[in-house]
Every structure is written in C-alpha cells, then in structure tokens.
Lab assay of single mutants.
Amino acid sequence: VTLFVALYDYEARTEDDLSFHKGEKFQILNSSEGDWWEARSLTTGETGYIPSNYVAPV
C-alpha cells in the first residue's frame, strides 16, 4: 500500500471533499479520476476526495 502525506492544510469545498491538516497520512483508494483522488485518512478514518497536488508519497 502506497501512503501519501499532506503537504498543506486543506478545507473541504464540497461534501465529497475531505478536509485535512499538514502531516496527515492517507491511503489512496482511487487515483484514476485526474487531479482529485479518493482517499482514506489514516488519522480520522474518513473517506473523500483530496487534491493530488496537496500530497506526496511517504
């Protein structure tokens, strides 16, 4: 499993987005949709879409 870490804070803009804080780690569930990836936060357990340019591989 490839994990990603948040480089910046992000505040959700829609109900499908996932808010997160810098340093939070994610498991990517689906990265085939372009710039927005479906991810699960390893901190909160919540699932939603995150901007791929806000995260980097651990």
Rank of each mutant, 00 (worst) to 15 (best):
Y10S: 03
E15R: 11
L18E: 00
R13E: 12
K25H: 13
G48M: 03
G48T: 01
E38T: 11
K25M: 15
K22H: 06
D17S: 15
Y54N: 03
I50H: 00
G23R: 02
K22S: 07
V58Q: 07
N30T: 09
H21W: 09
W37P: 01
G48N: 01
Y10T: 01
W36L: 09
S41R: 14
Y8P: 00
G45D: 06
S31M: 15
L18Q: 03
P57E: 09
W36H: 08
E38K: 11
T47C: 08
S19I: 02
W37S: 02
K25I: 15
S19W: 03
D35P: 10
D35Y: 14
I50R: 00
Y54H: 09
V5M: 09
G48I: 02
E46D: 10
I50N: 00
D16W: 15
G34V: 14
T14R: 15
V1W: 11
D9M: 04
G45P: 01
E33T: 12
P57K: 09
A56Q: 11
T43E: 13
W37N: 01
L7I: 10
E46T: 08
F4S: 04
D17T: 15
E33W: 11
A39K: 00
I50T: 01
L3H: 11
F20N: 00
V58R: 04
F4H: 07
E11C: 11
E11A: 10
H21L: 10
R13Q: 15
R40Y: 11
E38D: 04
T44P: 01
A6S: 05
V58N: 05
S31F: 15
R40V: 10
L7D: 02
Y10I: 01
V5K: 05
H21K: 15
S32W: 09
S52P: 08
A12V: 02
A12D: 02
I50V: 09
R13K: 13
E11M: 11
S41N: 11
T2Y: 10
D17W: 10
V55A: 04
A12L: 02
T44G: 03
G48F: 03
I28C: 04
T14D: 12
Y10R: 04
W37A: 03
Q27C: 12
E15L: 12
T43P: 03
S19M: 03
G23K: 02
G34K: 15
Y49C: 09
T2N: 13
T2F: 12
I50L: 07
Q27G: 03
A56E: 12
G23M: 03
E15V: 12
E24M: 06
L3D: 07
Q27D: 08
A39E: 00
T2Q: 13
P57W: 05
Y54Q: 06
Q27P: 00
A12I: 02
Y49F: 14
G45C: 10
K25Q: 12
V1L: 14
G34M: 13
E46C: 11
T43Y: 09
E38R: 10
S32F: 11
G48S: 01
S31G: 10
E11I: 13
P51G: 03
T14E: 09
T43C: 12
P51H: 07
E46N: 13
E38F: 15
S52M: 09
G23P: 00
G23W: 05
L7A: 03
E11G: 05
L18M: 14
N53W: 15
T43Q: 10
P51R: 07
I28D: 00
D16P: 04
F20A: 02
S52N: 06
D16H: 15
Y49P: 02
T44L: 02
E24A: 06
D35M: 12
V1P: 13
W36C: 07
F26D: 00
T44W: 03
Y8F: 11
A56N: 06
R40N: 04
S52W: 09
Y49T: 08
V1I: 13
R13P: 08
I28N: 01
L42K: 04
I28G: 01
V1N: 15
D17L: 10
Y8R: 09
S41E: 02
F4Q: 04
L29G: 04
N53Y: 10
S41V: 05
G48Q: 01
G45T: 03
F4P: 00
I50F: 01
D35G: 13
F20S: 01
D35A: 11
L42W: 06
E11V: 14
L18N: 01
P51S: 05
E24K: 01
N30L: 06
R40M: 12
V58L: 12
Y8S: 07
I28R: 04
N30F: 07
V55H: 01
T2V: 13
L7S: 03
F26Q: 00
Y10V: 02
E15Q: 12
D35V: 11
L29S: 05
G34I: 13
P51T: 02
S52I: 07
L42D: 04
E38Y: 15
G45W: 07
A6E: 01
L29R: 05
V55R: 00
D35C: 12
L29F: 07
P57Q: 09
F26K: 00
I50E: 00
L42F: 06
P51K: 07
S19A: 07
T44D: 03
D9N: 07
H21N: 10
D9F: 04
K25S: 07
W36F: 12
R13A: 12
R40W: 07
L18T: 02
V1M: 13
A56H: 09
A56W: 09
N30M: 07
S32L: 11
R13Y: 09
N53Q: 11
I50C: 01
E24W: 08
F20W: 01
E15K: 13
A12W: 03
L29T: 07
Y49W: 14
G45I: 02
S32I: 11
F4Y: 15
R40C: 07
T14Y: 15
S41T: 04
E46H: 13
Y54C: 07
Q27H: 13
Q27V: 15
L3M: 11
E11N: 10
P57D: 05
Y10G: 02
F20T: 03
T47Q: 11
N30E: 08
V55P: 01
F4C: 08
L3S: 06
K25D: 02
T14K: 14
I50M: 02
S31L: 10
D9A: 06
E46R: 15
L29V: 08
K25P: 05
A39H: 00
A6K: 00
I28K: 04
Y49S: 06
K25F: 15
N53R: 12
T47E: 09
L3F: 11
L3W: 10
S32R: 10
T43K: 13
Y10L: 03
A6L: 01
V5I: 13
K25V: 15
Y8D: 08
T44K: 04
L42Q: 07
S31N: 13
I50P: 00
F26T: 00
T44E: 01
E15N: 12
W37D: 01
E15W: 09
W36G: 03
S41Y: 02
V5E: 11
L18Y: 05
T43G: 07
R13T: 14
Y10P: 00
L18G: 00
Y54T: 05
S19T: 09
S32E: 12
L3R: 05
Y54R: 07
G23V: 01
E24C: 06
D9I: 02
E24V: 04
L42V: 09
P57A: 10
A12P: 05
K25R: 13
L18A: 02
D9E: 06
N30H: 08
K22F: 06
A56T: 12
T2S: 12
T44M: 02
E24N: 05
T47I: 14
D17H: 15
L42P: 02
V5N: 03
P57G: 05
E11H: 11
H21T: 14
F26R: 00
E33D: 15
T47M: 09
A12C: 05
K22I: 09
L18P: 01
T14C: 14
N53F: 09
E38L: 15
A39F: 02
Q27R: 08
W37R: 02
N53V: 08
D17F: 15
V1H: 15
E46I: 11
T43V: 10
T43H: 12
A12H: 06
L29A: 05
E33N: 15
P57I: 08
V55Q: 01
D16T: 15
K22G: 04
R13S: 11
I50W: 00
R13V: 14
V5S: 04
